[in-house]
Design a protein around this nucleic acid. Structure first.
Lengths: 221, 221
DNA sequence: CACAGTTTGTTCTCACGTTCACAAACTCCT
DNA sequence: AGGAGTTTGTGAACGTGAGAACAAACTGTG
C-alpha cells in the first residue's frame, strides 16, 4: 500500500535516460517537420543516434505510448516526452556574465524555441549596462534578487570567469534559484536540493586529445 | 606473456576516469598557483569536487605516483596527468562556423592555455572572410583540406547551424581529422575510428528543467 | 629500533546502465 | 476467422562505475 498519491505513482526515471529524452524530442521534431506521422523504434533510434533496444527501454520508463506491430505516433510521443521533461511550460532563465560566451548564449535561438525564455542579462561591469544584446538590455548584477523574485526564475546560467563563479552561484541560490548551468571552469559548491550542470569546453577538448594520443601511439612502432 | 610492447603495457583507463582527469589537472594547477607543493587525496578530491576514494582509484589507473603516509607531489602528479592526457604536446585545432558561438570559442583563453592552438577559423559565408577574430583571419571553408594537411590538424570544432554540421563533419573526416567537438544540435554520423563529442546547450537546460519540475511537483499537494 | 599515526593503493560489494532475446500484441492478407 | 509478419515492452545476463573498508607503506617520535 503505502498510499501516498494514489493516482500517480511518481515514476523514477534513470538519470541516463533523462539525458537522452531531449535528444529523442529533437529527433521527433525533425521527423514531424519532414511530414512523418508514425515511426518505429528503429527509425527513431537511428535519427537519435542510439540503439533501438535502448530507445525502447528508455521510453518504457515513461509508459506505453507505442503500438505493437505499428510503432509510435510522432506527435503523440513528442507531446508525452515534452510533458515528462517539463518543456510544455515556459521556463524563465537569467544569464550572468555577458562576455563572448554570454553574448552567444543570449543570441542562441535553441533556448527560446525549447520552452526557455531569457528574462534578464546581468553583468557586474558597469560599461556593459544598458547595452542591448539579442533585444535585451544588460542590467547590473545587483538586480538579480529583484528579477528572480518578480519573474519566479528557477534556472540560472553562469557565463562569468572562473573566479567569479562561486560568488554568483551563492547569490543565485540565496535569491531562490535552484538549478544552475555553469560554463565557468570552476567547481561550484551548492547546498543540497540545488542542481548544477557543468559545461566545460577545455575538458571536452582534453578528452578528445587523450583518445587522439592513444590512436597516434598505436600507429607507429 | 603475450609479448607485444614489453616495456609499456598499454593501460586501459576507464572512460569515466578519463573524463575526470582534466578536472584533477585543473585543481592541481590551482593548488600549485597557491604555492602548495604537496597534497593528500582528501585535499585534491575536495578541490576537484569528488570523493577521495574515487580520486585515489582514478589515479591508480595511471600508476603509483603518491607516497603512503605523505600524499602527492603537486607538480609531479600534474605532469603525469598532463602526459597521460596528452596535453604536454601542442594540439592544432580548426574551428568551423564563426557565428556568435564561434567568436566566443575563438576568444576562449582556456583553449590556448591547455595545449590547444587555434590554427584557423573557417566559415562558408564570404562576408566574414578576412575579418579578424582573436587575432586570426577568417578564411573560406574550402581552405579546410589545405590547412589540415599543412598543420597536421587532428581536432576540429563544429560551431555551425545544425543543417550544415553533417557536411562539415564529412569534409573534416575526409581531410584527415579524427576527433570532432560538435556544438551544433545535430546527430553526426562518422566512420569508425573517429571520435565525436557533443556539447548541446539546450539539452543541458532541458535536463535541468526536468529535475526542476520534479522538485516543484513534490512541494504543493 | 619499535610503535603510533597517517595516507596510499587495492579488493570487495553493490548499484546502475546497456544489450540481448523473446513473449505479447497489433496489422494485414487470404 | 486464422495465420504470417511486424514491432513493442520487458525480463534476464552482462559489463562498468561508485563507495566502503582495509592492508601496505611511509613518517616521526621516544
Amino acid at each position: 500500500m503505502t498510499a501516498r498519491t494514489p493516482a500517480e505513482t511518481v515514476r523514477d526515471i534513470p538519470e541516463a535516460t533523462v539525458a537522452r529524452l531531449p535528444v529523442y524530442l529533437r529527433a521527433l521534431t525533425a521527423l514531424a517537420e519532414s511530414g512523418i506521422t508514425t515511426c518505429s523504434s528503429e527509425d527513431l533510434a537511428s535519427a537519435a543516434g542510439v540503439n533501438s533496444a535502448k530507445l525502447r527501454k528508455d521510453l518504457s520508463y515513461l509508459g506505453s505510448y507505442g503500438t505493437r506491430g505499428v510503432g509510435y505516433d510522432v506527435d503523440y510521443l513528442r507531446y508525452q516526452i515534452a510533458r515528462e521533461i517539463g518543456v510544455t511550460q515556459d521556463w524563465p532563465v537569467v544569464i550572468v556574465g555577458i562576455g563572448n560566451l554570454g553574448h552567444a548564449l543570449a543570441n542562441f535561438s535553441g533556448f527560446r524555441s525549447r520552452g526557455f525564455r531569457t528574462v534578464a542579462l546581468l553583468d557586474a561591469a558597469p560599461h556593459l549596462h544598458g547595452e542591448e544584446v539579442a533585444g535585451i538590455k544588460v542590467q547590473p548584477f545587483d538586480e538579480l534578487e529583484t528579477i528572480v523574485r518578480e519573474n519566479s526564475v528557477a534556472i540560472g546560467v553562469i557565463a562569468t570567469p572562473a573566479v567569479a563563479a562561486q560568488d554568483v552561484a551563492d547569490r543565485m541560490v540565496a535569491a531562490g534559484i535552484s538549478s544552475i548551468l555553469n560554463f565557468a571552469p570552476a567547481v561550484l559548491s551548492v547546498p543540497p536540493g540545488v542542481d548544477v550542470r557543468k559545461v566545460d569546453l577545455s575538458i571536452e577538448l582534453q578528452i578528445l586529445a587523450y583518445h587522439e594520443q592513444r590512436k597516434a601511439q598505436g600507429e607507429p612502432a
